[in-house]
């Protein structure tokens, strides 16, 4: 039985985690999830030749973000047939269309706004909206509890300079 492949764009922030969770909540049948982020960062020839794609992607994901993704994955475990994180490195719509075709994407889930201020992420969202594939717009709900930024942003402020984390 073939499962639908759903493409979900994200950036490395808590808003993205919220969005991914909201998307998975909307899905009610088993699917293959492909999380995609955009990166045009230059990489060394050595890295391109000798490092596997998955290893390079792991470099982007820090331990905390990976654990948060695991939490979301475990919440929706029964709906997820496959859960992969991928990077899109192109600069134009044709490359994006090729990427979607190559990954056999059946549907794209997009946020009503954007998930971060990064130019690369905004470009990805903008061009995914123009893709010739079924699109579902998802409104992100701010949550307290697990998927949220720490106390520094509880009331919408960001004061990382004052924030101290203690582990002993």
């Amino acid at each position: 039985m073939g499962y639908k492949t759903v493409l979900i764009p994200f950036d490395f922030n808590h808003q993205s985690l919220n969005f991914i969770h909201s998307c998975l909540t909307q899905i009610d049948e088993p699917v293959k999830i492909r999380l995609v982020f955009s990166s045009q960062t230059e990489e060394s020839i050595f890295s391109l030749l000798f490092e596997s794609k998955s290893r390079r992607i792991r470099k982007y994901l820090d331990q905390e973000f990976r654990e948060e993704l695991d939490i979301i994955k475990n919440v929706h475990e029964n709906k997820i047939q496959e859960f992969t994180v991928d990077v899109f490195r192109g600069w134009n719509r044709a490359a994006l269309a090729n990427f979607c075709e190559g990954n056999k994407v059946d549907m794209i889930m997009l946020p009503t706004g954007t998930l971060s201020t990064s130019a690369q992420h905004r470009w990805l969202i903008k061009n995914l909206r123009k893709a010739a594939l079924p699109i579902q717009l998802i409104e992100t709900i701010q949550r307290t509890g697990f998927i949220q930024q720490s106390t520094a942003t509880i009331d919408g402020e960001h004061q990382s300079a004052d924030k101290v984390e203690v582990t002993r």
Partner: peptide
Amino acid sequence: TVSVASSDQYVNIKVIDTGIGIPVEDLPYI
């Protein structure tokens, strides 16, 4: 707020309050 979730290795419990907090200079001694 007390929330519970699980990653692949850990059960995570978060307890969040909006109270007095801890001054930065006192954090090393808590």
